[in-house]
Design a protein around this nucleic acid. Structure first.
Lengths: 185, 185
DNA sequence: TCTAAGTGCGTACGAATGTACACACTTTTG
DNA sequence: CAAAAGTGTGTACATTCGTACGCACTTAGA
C-alpha cells in the first residue's frame, strides 16, 4: 500500500496524446481515428496508448473532455471581462465572429463532439456540463430567457458561417444579440 | 448500345438500402456504420451493397443526400404555406419546437452529417445546397439580414434542446424570431 | 550493491472490415 | 429453342484494426 515507487519519465505524455487525438479527429473525423494514427501524430509508440488508456473510446472521451475544458475557460474569460450588458453583447459577437473561438478546427471538433455524444454517455455528460457552465457565464449579463436565445445563436451562427464562403458580418451579429437581449428582459 | 435488356427484380432496393443506412447511422454513428450492419438492417445480402454502390463512402454520401432532400422539402412546405410574416414566425417556431422536424433521430443524423461533411467534399456540397435552399425558403418572408439570424436560430436551438432535458418553450422561440424579424428589417 | 516493483514498449494475434469476383439465375433477342 | 447479356449473391481474401502481453529498463528501498 506504499506510494508510487517511481516517477514517470514523461509526465506530460498523456496530455500530448490527448492533443494529438484532437488533431487526428479534426483531420480525419472520429470515424477515421485509430490508435496508430494517434500514436504517429503524437510521436509515441503504439503500446504507449494501451498503457496509458483503457481503450480507444477512453482516449476519445478524455480528449473531448480536454477540449471542453479549454473552450469553457475561454468562454468564461470573455464574458466575465465584460462590465455591462452592451459590452457582453459585443463579447458574444466576438465569440461568434472571432478567429480564436470559432476557428475552422474548433468548429470541426465541435461537430465531431456533438455527433459522438449521441452515441457515448460519457461524452454526452461532458457536453451537458459544458453547456451548463456556458449558460452560467451568460447568466451574469442576460435574463434566463435571453440566455436560451443567445445560446442558440452562439451555437448556430458559426455553424452556418462555416458552410458559406463569406465571413460573418460582426455588426449584424451584435445587433441581433442586442435585439434579443432587450426584447427578452 | 441498346437499352437495358432486363428489368431489375427489386427496383426499390437501392432506396431501401439508403434508408437502412440512415437508421444505422442514427443508431451507431458514422464511425460505427459498416456494410454488414447496413445489409442486416435492410435485410439484403452483403454482396448487394457492392453491387449497387461503389464503396461504403458512396453509400453514406447518397444516404445523406436523400436525407437532405427529404428535410428540405418539409422545410419548404412549412414556409410556403405561411401567408404573412407573423405566420412565418410561427411556422419557424414550429419547425424548431415541433416533433416532426427536430425529432431526436433527425437531430442525431444532422449532427452526423455536419461532422462528416467536414471530411467529405460530396457531402459538403450536398449540405451547401441544402442550406442555400432553406435560405431561399426563408427569404420569402424575411429580409436578407433577418434570414441569417433566423437561420442560425433554427440551427442552434434544437441542438441545445437536445442536451437539456426539458422541452422547448414555443412561445419564447416565437417571440425571439419575431424580435429578430422586426429589428432586422 | 542487490532486489523488488513499477514503467514503458515492441510485437503478435484474433476479429472485423472493405472489396473483389466467380458463379448462378432470369429475361430478352435472334 | 438457344444463347447472349445483364442481375444478383455467396464467399473468400488481403488489410487494418483494437488489444494483450512478455520482456527490457529504471529507480527506490534494504
Amino acid at each position: 500500500m506504499g506510494g508510487s515507487r517511481r516517477v514517470a519519465n514523461d509526465p506530460l505524455r498523456k496530455q500530448r496524446i490527448l492533443d494529438a487525438t484532437l488533431n487526428v479527429i479534426a483531420q480525419h473525423g472520429v470515424h477515421g481515428t485509430t490508435h496508430r494514427r494517434i500514436a504517429s501524430e503524437a510521436g509515441v509508440p503504439l503500446g504507449s496508448l494501451t498503457y496509458h488508456f483503457d481503450s480507444l473510446g477512453d482516449i476519445i472521451e478524455q480528449a473531448f473532455a480536454r477540449m471542453a475544458e479549454s473552450m469553457s475557460q475561454r468562454y468564461h474569460a470573455a464574458l466575465t471581462a465584460a462590465p455591462d450588458q452592451p459590452a457582453a453583447c459585443a463579447a458574444v459577437a466576438d465569440l461568434i465572429c472571432g478567429e480564436e473561438y470559432a476557428t475552422p478546427r474548433e468548429l470541426t471538433l465541435l461537430h465531431e463532439m456533438y455527433a459522438y455524444a449521441n452515441h457515448n454517455r460519457t461524452v454526452a455528460e461532458t457536453l451537458r456540463q459544458w453547456l451548463r457552465r456556458s449558460r452560467a457565464s451568460l447568466a451574469r449579463h442576460f435574463s434566463e430567457r435571453a440566455c436560451r436565445a443567445v445560446d442558440a445563436l452562439i451555437e448556430g451562427w458559426p455553424m452556418h458561417q462555416a458552410w458559406e464562403g463569406e465571413p460573418l458580418d460582426r455588426e449584424l451579429v451584435r445587433e441581433t444579440i442586442t435585439a434579443v437581449a432587450e426584447r427578452l428582459r
